[in-house]
């Protein structure tokens, strides 16, 4: 009625009980909902727990800077090549705008962060890919930054550690992207020939041309639990072989079982594990046995 229109709405006599669905739509920032077990936790606590779910152990993706902070001794990180940016060699429509957007979003110049620093007082050159920047895809700048980082490790005679997270080669740079696979692999080969140690840590997700180049070329290849690691996409494989693939297909655990990884290491154990590997590979003075 028209009269009702002007009168104050009647106070409801019942309380609103949010449904399960709305209950889980907690604003990001204060609370986080685990994509695996669906449980809610304080984002602050999640951050403190290295972005590992407090309930089920699910490893959230980390940003490159979070990774550096979680691994390197405080104040030791020195970034390389921060000003290197992609051009648009194939004049791909909209590409430069997408890059600009992701630069703003991530505060990174590209999908990989490189630099040097110490892990428990042992110097390393570190590269960390960030899947938030163009899905971590590899174009000219990613290939160039990783190659320069490997060459710097070679010059400094320190180990090279790389954390991978990538959707593969970057379509918008065409053949240049493909060639970065060869370039980075060649740099690792030369570094290896000079006796350098490379450790790769594959994180979620590591796929395509990145898996088929430097990610698989460590002297030691590690992965985080549950990480998706593979070459071809799941959907393409399912279409090709016309069967459904098991849930665990292309997970770190699956690769370990099939002999494709050295170890799956929980995020909380990574720093210790890496420090242990660095310790074993410390240059020793030949002839001066310590035992």
């Amino acid at each position: 009625m028209l009269k009702d229109f002007f009168s104050k709405p009647k106070k409801r006599k019942y309380a609103t009980i949010p449904s399960d669905h709305t209950k889980q739509e907690v604003p990001e920032g204060i609370m986080s909902k685990c994509p695996k077990c669906g449980k809610i936790m304080y984002t602050k606590e999640l951050q403190k727990n290295l972005k590992v779910c407090l309930h089920c152990g699910y490893h959230y993706q980390m940003t490159a800077y979070e990774r550096v902070e979680s691994l390197l001794d405080e104040g030791t990180f020195e970034e390389f090549d921060r000003g290197l940016v992609s051009k648009n060699p194939l004049a791909f429509p909209g590409y430069l705008e997408k890059l600009e957007k992701d630069r703003k979003k991530t505060n990174l110049n590209e999908a990989v962060l490189t630099g040097k620093g110490n892990i428990q007082e042992r110097p390393v050159v570190l590269s960390v890919m960030d899947a938030q920047f163009r899905m971590g895809s590899m174009g000219s700048v990613v290939g160039e930054k990783i190659t320069r980082a490997i060459e710097e490790a070679d010059r400094l005679h320190v180990p090279f550690i790389i954390f991978t997270a990538s959707g593969g080669a970057r379509m918008q740079e065409g053949i240049y992207s493909l060639m970065q696979m060869a370039k980075t692999s060649a740099a690792l080969e030369r570094f290896s020939r000079h006796g350098g140690l490379t450790v790769t840590v594959m994180t979620h997700p590591t796929t395509g041309g990145v898996t088929a180049s430097f990610a698989s070329l460590g002297d030691i290849n590690l992965a985080e639990p549950g990480a998706l690691i593979g070459f071809a996409g799941r959907r393409i494989i399912e279409q090709t072989i016309r069967e459904e693939l098991p849930e665990v297909f292309q997970t770190a655990e699956f690769l370990l079982e099939h002999g494709q990884l050295d170890a799956v290491v929980k995020r909380h154990d990574l720093k210790k594990t890496l420090a242990g590997i660095l310790d074993i590979h410390q240059p020793t003075n030949a002839g001066e046995l310590q035992w």
């Binding site: 921060r82 000003g83 290197l84 940016v85 992609s86 051009k87 060699p89 630069r103 110049n109 000219s140 700048v141 290939g143 160039e144 190659t147 740079e173 240049y176 060639m179 970065q180 060869a182 370039k183 060649a186 740099a187």
Partner: peptide
């Protein structure tokens, strides 16, 4: 292979 790639340096960034 080392020289394949197209990029520039953005001082401002």
């Amino acid at each position: 292979y080392r020289k394949i790639g197209v990029f520039s340096t953005l001082e401002q960034f």
